[in-house]
Amino acid sequence: MADLILHHYATSPFSEKLRLILGYKKLAWKSVIIPQIAPKPELVALTGGYRRTPVLQIGADIYCDTALICDVLEHLAPLPSIYPEPGKGLARVLAQWADSTLFWAAMAYNFSPKGAADMFGKAPPEVVKAFTEDRRAMSGSMVRLRPADAAAAYKSYLRRLSDMLDDTDYLLGAFPTVADFACYHPLWFTRKRTPSMAGILQLTPAVGDWMDRMAAIGHGTMEVFDAARALEVATASTPHTLLSDSTFQDEHGIALGSPVTIAAESFGPEATEGELVAATRTHYTLRRTDPRAGTVHVHFPRIGYVLRAVSP
Rank of each mutant, 00 (worst) to 15 (best):
R281I: 08
A263K: 15
D290K: 03
E270L: 09
G253L: 04
R288P: 06
S266R: 13
I262E: 05
A271W: 02
T289I: 07
R281M: 10
D290A: 11
T289S: 15
P269L: 12
A255T: 06
G257F: 08
S266A: 14
Y284K: 01
I262V: 15
R281K: 12
E273K: 15
A278P: 02
T285E: 13
G253P: 02
D250V: 00
T272E: 05
R281E: 14
Y284E: 01
E275P: 00
G257M: 04
T280Q: 00
T280F: 02
E273C: 09
G268C: 12
T261C: 09
A271M: 03
T282S: 12
T285L: 01
I254F: 00
T282Y: 05
R288I: 10
G274K: 07
T282M: 09
A264W: 02
Y284A: 01
E273M: 10
T282G: 01
F267P: 05
S266C: 08
R288A: 06
A255C: 02
E270Q: 14
I262N: 09
T285W: 01
S258K: 04
A271C: 05
E270C: 02
A263D: 13
A278L: 10
G268Q: 10
E270W: 11
A278D: 06
G274Q: 07
S258D: 06
V277S: 06
E265T: 14
V260T: 08
H283W: 03
T285F: 01
P259A: 13
F267L: 11
D290T: 09
E270I: 08
T261H: 07
V260A: 05
E270R: 10
G257K: 07
A279M: 14
H252G: 00
L286K: 08
H252S: 12
G257V: 05
E251D: 12
G274N: 07
A278S: 14
V277F: 09
T272C: 14
P259L: 10
G268E: 09
G274L: 05
A271Q: 14
I254P: 02
R281D: 14
P259R: 15
G253F: 04
R287E: 14
A255E: 11
A263W: 06
Y284F: 15
G268K: 07
S258E: 13
T282P: 03
A279V: 00
A279Y: 05
A271H: 07
P269V: 05
D290L: 04
R281L: 06
G268I: 12
Y284P: 02
A279L: 11
L286P: 05
T280A: 03
E265W: 00
E265L: 10
D250E: 10
E270P: 00
D290V: 03
T289A: 12
I254C: 01
Y284T: 01
V277N: 03
E275A: 01
E251Y: 06
A264S: 13
G253T: 00
D290E: 12
S266V: 11
D250A: 01
R281F: 04
T272H: 04
L256C: 02
P259Q: 13
G253C: 01
T261Q: 13
G257C: 03
A264Q: 08
L276Y: 07
S266G: 13
H283A: 10
Y284D: 04
L256F: 01
I262C: 11
F267H: 15
